[in-house]
Amino acid sequence: MRLKCRQFKALFFYDLSNGFQRNQWKWLFALLLQIYYCILAGNTGVLGRFTSLFEGQYELQLSTQWLTFHGFLLFLVNFYPVNELTYNGGQAIIRSGRKEYWLFSKMMWIISTVISYYLLLVLVLVIGSVFTGSFSISPDVMMEIFEIDITGLNLTKIILYWWGMPLLVSIALCITEAILSLFIQPVISLFIMFAYLIASAYCMNPAFLGNYAMLKRQDFTSGVLSISPQNCLISCMLLMIIAVTAGTLCFKRKDTFQLQGGE
């Protein structure tokens, strides 16, 4: 058991190091994109800047900022697992010991990448606020600019709605996308998930997870009780369980033919 843990830990650290280095340019672009969002939001404090990014739309419309933020994250995580599968004729996967370890390590890498992406955003927004000198936003200003009522929301709820739910949705979507990319062309899996995100904007239904990641669609603002944190947790967990279980079963039987992939 200890040997398995050690082996898995080594594989995970390998993914952290290798995954980051392979995605260096994408991370740089993510940073620039987030700085751009920060500038775009103006002097609205950390929460205001977050809101401008995650607010989405009440009506069935598409928010460009919201889509680019989530879409770029899908792009960031999509190619590494499949490139690693075929890298140097499968040199990495044969060293992992078991196919399941390899796959779970990639899932852990995806979760780490998504969290890092969100933490980078927090960092950029906080630094942006230090430069502009505006940290907070009053409920009145929030109502006036974003039409979102935050009176009565405590810090825990704000973190849950502004950070927790979008983060959970991102993790579920990225894991599903990465698993799909192992079986179909990675570009196609990216398009499928992108289309699913866009469909969320035009379909206010809890089956479309993107709704949980839009502040103006969440229960406390829209009044639609089904788009709640509880349902978000259940839906995301369900999607992840289905994706990981089906992915693991199919992956165990998957043939690796494309041996000259990678960079």
């Binding site: 040199q91 996967i93 044969i94 165990k252 990678g262």
Partner: peptide, 23 residues
């Protein structure tokens, strides 16, 4: 495929080796 996914202690060179070009 049943007891083990990959042979332990195996080294391989399959066709043209591909490495990370920037390292």
């Amino acid at each position: 495929g049943k007891d083990i996914s990959f042979p332990k202690n195996m080294g391989m060179l399959l066709e043209t080796p591909v490495f990370l070009p920037e390292r």
